[in-house]
Computed example of a mutant assay.
Amino acid sequence: MDPTTTFLSCDWGTSSFRLRLVERETLKVLAEESSKEGNAATAELWKQAGQPAEQRVAFYLAIVQTHLKKLEEAVKTSLDGVPLVISGMASSTVGMLEVPYKPLPFATDGADLAVKILEATPDFKHVVVLISGVKSADDVMRGEEVQLVGCQFEHSAELQLFLHPGTHAKHVLVQQGQAVALKTYMTGEFFSLLSTKSILSASVVEGGKLADGDNRRWFEHGVRASQTANLLHNAFLVRTNDLFHKASKAKNYFYLSGLLIGSECNELQANIPAGITLAGELVLVELYRAALQALGIAGRCPVRTKTAEEVTLNGQFAVLQHHLHLLAHPEK
């Protein structure tokens, strides 16, 4: 495999691992491997192994190597020399090597993100570009900064919003080619806790899609309710909806989702950006787009959507391009 026309993309989160062989010119995925070997599980294995600290990077790369062998089997050729770009939690305290956060602001083309370059070795024949996260005075993100770069924001004096839904949703303001402000919302984690661990868990059931039956109507009902009453009161209505047979458990699931996403997006009402880019997993992107429509925000500014894979590959390749000269001349 020609190392100058391909690269290896590794998206290594807290609970998941994904490795792709990618064609540079088209960003087409040529082969892919994934597992549940996230950084949290790997950190626990590393702890149990009891190896010296200087072996930590090699321990983590050995896991990558097992997936690389599967990619080589899939494409039926050696991948030696193909550079590897890693983003996500691999640069955190539970990752292979902690790399300090890049303080805001940062360039939306990825030119000044914090990066650690690991040279190839006889045991791991790939140069590694390990991308770190970003911090503000009171907030942090790891992985989403690469996806923001992958959105390819226009250089504009107007404020634009990068919105990444997830366990910890990220709202990042972009202006003049710089990411300038960051807020994290624990929307996904709160939803998980309420729907599986609280008294509300008996009143909701997961399943179905937003477009099925009355699911969207109940989701929008939750979004609108989030604007008119306190979330802590509204959340209890999930139980009474069930008790009084006002909504099925499946509809309640979407109602609760609407309450939380609507609460997250409430602040946007008073500060409409010039544009919003929604980037992430398709199911979540659809929910957030529906919420922005229900709140009337989508009617007041353009909303574009992008997939998690698209922006991750775009962002990783952009960072790789900025460091290609260092990969060719590591001594400089």
Rank of each mutant, 00 (worst) to 15 (best):
M1H: 12
T5K: 14
L8E: 10
S9T: 02
D11H: 08
D11K: 10
G13Q: 14
S15C: 13
F17H: 07
R18F: 12
R18D: 12
E23S: 11
E25R: 15
E32V: 00
E33K: 10
K36E: 09
K36V: 10
N39C: 15
A43C: 10
E44I: 07
W46M: 10
P52L: 07
A53V: 10
E54M: 10
E54Q: 11
A58H: 00
Y60C: 05
A62N: 10
E73L: 13
V75H: 05
T77H: 15
G81A: 13
L84V: 05
I86A: 01
A90D: 09
S91E: 07
S92Y: 07
L97I: 00
L97Q: 09
P100V: 01
Y101A: 11
P103D: 13
F106E: 08
G110A: 09
I117D: 10
V127C: 08
D138R: 08
R142E: 03
R142S: 03
E145V: 00
L148P: 02
L148W: 01
C151T: 10
F153G: 07
A157N: 04
Q160C: 09
L161A: 07
H164F: 15
T167C: 08
V172S: 04
Q176I: 00
K183S: 11
K183R: 12
G188F: 09
G188M: 08
E189M: 03
E189C: 11
L194P: 03
S195G: 05
K197S: 14
L200C: 13
S201R: 14
D214M: 13
N215D: 07
H221Y: 13
H221K: 15
L231W: 08
L232E: 12
A235I: 13
V238C: 11
R239H: 11
T240M: 14
N241S: 08
D242K: 08
L243Q: 05
A247C: 04
A247P: 00
S248M: 08
F254C: 00
G258P: 01
L259C: 02
L260H: 08
L260D: 02
G262L: 02
S263D: 15
N266C: 09
P273Y: 06
G275I: 00
I276D: 04
T277V: 14
T277W: 02
L278D: 01
L282M: 02
L287R: 11
Y288P: 02
A291E: 01
L295M: 10
L295P: 04
C301E: 04
P302K: 05
T305G: 05
A308G: 06
E309G: 01
V311T: 05
Q316Y: 03
L324A: 14
L324G: 02
L327N: 09
A328S: 14
E331W: 14
